[in-house]
Design a protein around this nucleic acid. Structure first.
Lengths: 160, 160
DNA sequence: TCTATATGTGTAATAACATAACACGTCAAG
DNA sequence: CTTGACGTGTTATGTTATTACACATATAGA
């Protein structure tokens, strides 16, 4: 089972990001998709920190680097990454974060720190199973589930 | 335990809405808050159907009835209702829906039909308990949880 | 009752988030 | 070598949300 504290724990982040990027390359090639320069760069930006970035934050970075300066530039790259399951959208923040478990079949719940905005992925398979049971009782057919927890990460618990 | 299929099931909706409104009156009075005309009217609008309404939909209705025509008119009333736990915000839709269990201590998960936009509340206490365990393993202190399931309600499953 | 204070409403202006539509370029398959 | 799919750039616009300030109204305390 994926370790939910990965993002919060001390780790060799350069390596973490590098590995993710390589996995992304492999996965997109396998899917017959193209990880073009913009798309790759956006993924790198999302991988810089375990935080969610808004589309306009991404856009500003892209523009500074010579890519276009209109919203679709960012939104399209982000949409691609989400479609390829290389990134997730965080509804609560209207923002995006790199997937922490690329290529693994997982059902994420997001742990969002309201102080430092760090985002970790916990495994929600069990949580969803319980929900599916409830939904089934109502005759509702669940297709997609969003689970987002807002709170305080380990390092922000002292300071608030 | 609250019945998750309430919104989807046939029911005497006029009575359902009327009861909710009375409960809201009682609860706000008990809380020392004021259910003013705008606020009450917004709640009535949310109670018309078990669907989520966007802030600007609400605003349009209010304006047509002689209330102000600027966004804060709607947003403030909606914020009040959410604060008083008389309504919920549906993140996925950027919209609001009346609480189906006013005054009851409940942990809702929302079942959102992507075809008819109906919204039901299922009980998510169990689902959350499971998530809390995961979060605790990561040292994360959960404060608020959003659980939203997108899918098809019973009556829309045939037609899609 | 008067009046101070908190609360609520109305309005203007703007910020933040997101998409539609079209032109153009590139690249790989036929 | 051309055609069609895909990707990028740009214009324009649509949608959602907030800040700031003016004014009104309700309520509690003198």
């Amino acid at each position: 089972m994926p370790d939910p504290d990965l993002a919060f724990a001390d780790h060799d982040h350069a390596r973490c990001a590098q590995d993710a990027l390589e996995r992304a390359e492999t996965l997109t090639r396998a899917a017959g998709a193209r990880l073009t320069p913009v798309r790759r760069r956006v993924l790198e930006l999302l991988l810089e920190e375990h935080k969610a970035l808004g589309a306009y934050d991404v856009l500003a970075r892209l523009t500074a680097e010579g890519f276009g300066n209109q919203p679709p530039i960012a939104y399209r790259a982000l949409e691609f990454l989400v479609d390829q399951r290389l990134a997730h959208r965080i509804q609560r923040l209207n923002a995006f974060t790199a997937c922490a478990h690329m290529g693994e079949d997982h059902a994420p719940a997001f742990l969002i720190c309201r102080a430092c905005h760090m985002v970790a992925e916990a495994e929600a398979a069990n949580s969803r199973a319980v929900l599916d049971t409830e939904a089934a009782r109502a005759g509702f057919r669940v297709e997609r589930v969003t689970i987002e927890a807002l709170g305080l990460c380990p390092s922000c618990q002292g300071s608030t």
